[in-house]
């Protein structure tokens, strides 16, 4: 943990869809520069909670501050300060690499000059200079994924939300992807990531595990393994998930 400045502060977040409670009284904090893993089985309520934190959905009740802003009342300011990458791949296939960067940076209000400078650096770093004017559709998936993440943090948000970012990617690319996440974290960007790959959970600074809309455990991966006397996160997860009443 790099800092004790709270970037996300959630108190008693509840979200109901009719009689179904998707998020049941969640409370947790995320600190600046932290990589916070948000784990849970499908249907446990991860995505719902994440959408509320991004301002995509309203909570039924609770107090939620993200980047020092209230998600109810300061949505517009909030949106400038967060980045988001969804599980579905999210760059435009029919635009070139640079056009994608220019578009996304543009909607965050960056000037064309800044965009050009920063994108040159970025492409050098990712070793994609030769692909600057290639359409995204021509690139291999691994590159697209890395590029999508880089675009999500291009405008330098305080926090970036990643919704299962490494779905369908091979282990080597996943490892490289996590290198980018570490780098972002070193630069002070808080990373809030949902995943169901348990090996990825080990990479996080802290992990919360959701079962049936509640947070059942929240600690460092080491702490959780000790507490549940498990050899890896997989085992921790299975023990907790067995408590689930959720039937497919």
């Amino acid at each position: 943990m790099n800092s004790d400045k709270k970037v996300i502060s959630v108190r008693n977040l509840t979200k109901k869809f009719g009689s179904f409670t998707a998020n049941d009284d969640l409370s947790f904090d995320v600190y600046q520069g932290e990589i916070f893993g948000f784990l849970g089985a499908n249907g446990a309520g991860k995505t719902t909670a994440m959408k509320i934190l991004c301002g995509l959905s309203y909570p039924t009740s609770g107090e939620i501050m993200v980047a020092g802003l209230d998600v109810y009342k300061q949505r517009e300011e909030l949106k400038r300060n967060i980045g988001y990458m969804s599980q579905k791949f999210s760059l435009y296939e029919d635009l070139t690499v640079f056009e994608n960067i220019r578009f996304y940076a543009g909607i965050y209000g960056m000037s064309l000059k800044d965009i050009k400078l920063k994108s040159d650096d970025l492409l050098k770093k990712l070793d994609l200079v030769h692909a600057r004017n290639k359409r995204i559709g021509e690139l291999p998936l691994g590159w697209k994924q890395k590029l999508a993440f880089s675009v999500a943090i291009f405008h330098n948000p305080e926090i970036v939300f990643l919704d299962e970012p490494t779905g369908g990617v091979d282990p080597v690319t996943r490892r490289q992807f996590w290198d980018l996440i570490y780098e972002a974290s070193r630069n002070g960007i808080t990373v809030f990531v949902t995943t169901h790959y348990m090996d990825e959970a080990e990479y996080c600074n802290r992990v919360s595990i959701m079962v049936d809309g509640r947070i059942e455990a929240l600690d460092t991966p080491e702490g959780l393994k000790n507490k549940f006397e498990a050899k890896d996160m997989d085992e921790v997860f299975l023990r907790l998930a067995r408590k689930s009443n959720y039937k497919e």
Partner: peptide, 14 residues
Amino acid sequence: EMGTMEILLVSPLR
């Protein structure tokens, strides 16, 4: 379908 709508909705665009 491509998931880009979510990104747009999260962005400062109204």
